[in-house]
Amino acid sequence: MKGVLLVNLGSPESPTPKDVKPYLDEFLMDKYVIDVTYLLRALLVRGIILRKRPEQSAHAYAQIWTDEGSPLIVFSKRMHEKVKNQVDIPVALAMRYGTMTIEKGLQELKDQGVTDVMLLALYPQYAMASTTTIWALADELVATKFPEITLTKVPAFYNKPDFIQALANSIKKHLEGFDYDHLLFSYHGIPKRHIRKTDVTKSHCKINGSCCTTPSPAHEFCYRHQCFETTKQVVKLLGIPEGKYSQTFQSRLAGDKWLTPYTDVEINNMPAKGIKKLAVVTPAFVADCLETLEEIAMRANEDFKANGGEEFFAVPCLNDEDEWCNVVANWVKDWSKN
């Protein structure tokens, strides 16, 4: 019997240091997120980061928390329900970190008699710190606890026409009536070394002005290329002229070389360049979360206006929009027929 497991990032149980600390520990101790030796990772995370970060992150989470809980969880559950109601096979929802574990999701499917699982990591672009860690943990769980289950991993959907159409339609709808000077595509940042590590050719990814536009097998697993491709296809559909949009990367950690240009630096410099009305879309996420709501809609908004900007609009993620849920449901239906 076939079934589907949808997996997103996860969230602390509450916006308090007590709950944020174990969540951050699980997240940052993941070898696919901070890819150094265990001892160095433990020293960095448990010896340095977790001394102050839980209080800071708890404060940030408190800014976006709703009566229903974490926005990421709330929107993911709503999307899950809509997809589940459109298909005739079991669909479970899990998170990579936190209490809604992948193991619980697989167990839920197993209890319904599922032996063939479509594993959909809810990240449009492939990255080691998002897609790979979900796939690796699912493989480990199947090998050790669910040997009767077979996994079918859905590749990154950054350029799938129905996803691009849903994303473009959502952006157009939300920006209706907002006469922006510039549309910024802000993607989650990752260390440059992650790009080189996932280069299957071991030589193509130079992270320069041409490698992402030069055809290569490396693009199947190249986050940077896939971000550029998502932007390019959405811009084409929306008919946005050259010069009225750009692409950046957000959420970097100090002490490493991350993908550039940086979102915060670019946004802070825009008013001086004559950009007074700014819209920002975050296409690396399908559900609004800390990075889209607190980092962009709140902090970036404040910084833009403090530097002379006048109007700022953060475009919501796809969340539980009907068109997006229909797209996922159609992927499930297509897969279940095979």
Rank of each mutant, 00 (worst) to 15 (best):
P71F: 09
H204G: 08
E321S: 13
V328Y: 03
H59F: 06
L278W: 00
E266R: 15
D88P: 00
T214C: 07
F304D: 08
M118C: 03
Y180E: 11
R196A: 15
I34T: 12
L293N: 12
R196H: 14
K145G: 07
K31F: 12
L293I: 15
M128Q: 12
R299Q: 10
R252P: 01
V91L: 06
E55L: 07
Y32R: 15
P17Q: 05
L151F: 04
T101A: 05
P12W: 01
L122S: 09
P271V: 14
K77H: 04
D162H: 04
F75M: 14
T101K: 04
I64K: 06
A129M: 07
T131V: 14
D264P: 00
D35L: 09
R53P: 00
A279Q: 07
L141D: 09
A58L: 02
C211V: 11
A279E: 09
W258T: 14
P261Q: 13
T198G: 11
P316C: 13
C289K: 08
I134W: 01
C205Y: 03
R196V: 15
P241H: 06
H174L: 13
N326I: 00
A297H: 13
M270G: 04
I149K: 06
A60N: 10
D67N: 07
Q233A: 09
L141C: 07
P124G: 11
Y262Q: 05
K145W: 06
V286I: 13
Q247N: 11
I149C: 08
L278E: 03
M95S: 01
T214G: 05
K236G: 09
L137P: 01
K232R: 13
C317P: 00
M79L: 15
E291R: 08
L137A: 04
L44S: 10
E55T: 08
V234Q: 05
F285C: 05
C227V: 05
N307D: 11
K2D: 09
M298Q: 12
L106Q: 05
A92F: 10
D19T: 15
K145D: 11
Q107P: 00
H204W: 13
E323H: 01
F249T: 02
R224L: 11
W324N: 07
D116A: 07
T131S: 15
L50C: 03
K277C: 08
K52Y: 11
R193A: 06
A254I: 10
T214I: 10
T231E: 12
I240K: 05
K77S: 03
R78A: 09
R53C: 02
V4E: 04
K82G: 01
N208C: 15
G209S: 14
P283T: 10
F228Q: 14
V91T: 04
E302V: 08
V281E: 00
N307I: 11
L9Y: 14
N208L: 10
F75C: 08
I195H: 01
L278V: 03
